[in-house]
Amino acid sequence: MPFDVTALRSHFPSLDHGLAFFDGPGGSQTPRVVAEAIAATMISPLSNRGTISTSELNAERAVAEFRSAYADLLGVPTTGIVHGRSATQLTYDFSRHLARTWRPGDEIIVSRLDHDSNVRPWIQAAERAGVTVRWIDLDGASLDLDTYQPSERTRLVAVTAASNVLGTIPPLREIVDRAHEVGALVYVDGVHYAAHHLADVPADFFVCSPYKFFGPHCGVLAASPELLETLQPDKLVPSSNAVPERFEFGTLPYEMLAGATAAVDFIAAIAPGGSGTRRERLAGSFAAIHEHELALRAQLEAGLRELGDAITVHSTAPDRTPTTLLTLEGRDAREAQIHLAGLGVLAPAGSFYAYEPFRALDLTDPALRVGLAPYNTPEEIDRLLTGLAAFLKL
């Protein structure tokens, strides 16, 4: 049974407004069931976690269901799931936790492909600890693995699972294996990847953001509980020292947890005729999503080629998500964004916190990012291409 995009779209009230959303890499639209889960949690009896009253048990259930859902999504035990306000906040937190053991003479490795949230926290932590920073450079839109040289001094490798601007999916298995050979840990930014593929990355730490795949604004980190047990963050004396609670500061936002859980269950139900465990249903749904998005990407790329040399496509890696970065010869991408917005087509212009990729590609001006999501349609691709063609003639 083919992917039914019409049925999927019926769950998103925002799509009824006639806008074509190509800004998924910055945050997806939200299905009704997620908003309902948030609201239901907030208006039900609710208090701090405990085991006595209904309100305490409701809070406990929200936390337990959240950990169970993200354990299935990210492939770790429930005690390996850490909630955070955002992926950036989690990365800053864990950069401080991990850097406590770094010493002068150690080194870390970061990449020119990454969003700045998986670069700057590590560089700043390294500067404080007196640790050397080394780089994996870019070769076009792909990582140049000839510049990736982990050694016995390497303590950490930070790399993305998929670029939020180019869509590039680097060869993570090779990157992780080479790091592990020298005893280094690997911290993977899966924020963009997790919106398009089931997380099966063999990293030590994997961070993602539910609001990129239909959920509320928060962050989730996955790691093995055994690894988390080796880390001792600063914490309040009376707060729990259990894993993963020792990394979650203050009272958890139970309504956000409920919404994030609902997003995972929504994805698990996308695949037609899905059955089996939630993890198995998620795998089926992501396979259906990938096939649908791949067809849309092919349509988009064919249409961009027809527009000729006025458009330069920078997303050229052989393995990539359906996210395309482009510039327009002699034209300001921000003006293109404004023109498209007037047609009800939302494709943002900017650098999208991808500071290092823009420097590596010598992109000094904003670029237009077209990010596809499961609810996009072939008709919306046509609207985008027609709008771009009209803009180029202005």
Rank of each mutant, 00 (worst) to 15 (best):
A87E: 14
A87Q: 04
T88C: 09
T88S: 13
Q89R: 14
Q89P: 05
D93N: 12
D93R: 10
F94R: 03
F94H: 07
S95L: 01
R96G: 03
H97N: 09
H97R: 02
L98S: 13
L98A: 09
L98M: 14
A99M: 03
R100D: 15
T101M: 06
W102E: 00
R103I: 01
R103W: 09
R103E: 04
R103P: 06
E107P: 10
E107H: 07
I109P: 10
V110H: 05
V110A: 03
R112T: 15
L113C: 10
H115R: 08
D116F: 00
S117C: 11
S117R: 15
N118S: 15
R120P: 01
R120A: 00
R120C: 00
P121N: 01
P121D: 01
Q124T: 07
A125L: 04
G130W: 12
G130V: 13
T132H: 11
T132I: 15
T132N: 11
T132P: 09
V133K: 12
R134A: 08
R134P: 12
W135C: 00
W135T: 02
W135N: 02
D137K: 15
L138T: 04
L138C: 05
L138Q: 04
S142F: 04
D146S: 10
P150M: 07
T154A: 01
R155C: 13
V157N: 02
A158T: 08
V159T: 14
V159R: 11
T160H: 05
A161I: 13
A162K: 11
V165E: 07
L166T: 12
L166I: 11
G167N: 15
G167A: 09
I169Y: 08
P170G: 02
P170C: 03
P171I: 03
P171G: 00
R173W: 03
R173P: 02
V176H: 03
D177L: 10
E181P: 04
E181G: 02
G183L: 09
A184I: 12
L185N: 10
L185D: 13
L185G: 14
V186N: 00
Y187M: 06
Y187N: 00
Y187A: 00
V188T: 13
D189A: 14
D189L: 12
G190Q: 15
G190D: 08
V191P: 12
Y193F: 14
A194W: 07
A195M: 09
A195S: 09
H196E: 12
H197G: 07
H197R: 14
L198M: 07
L198Y: 13
A199F: 00
D200A: 00
P202G: 02
P202D: 01
A203F: 09
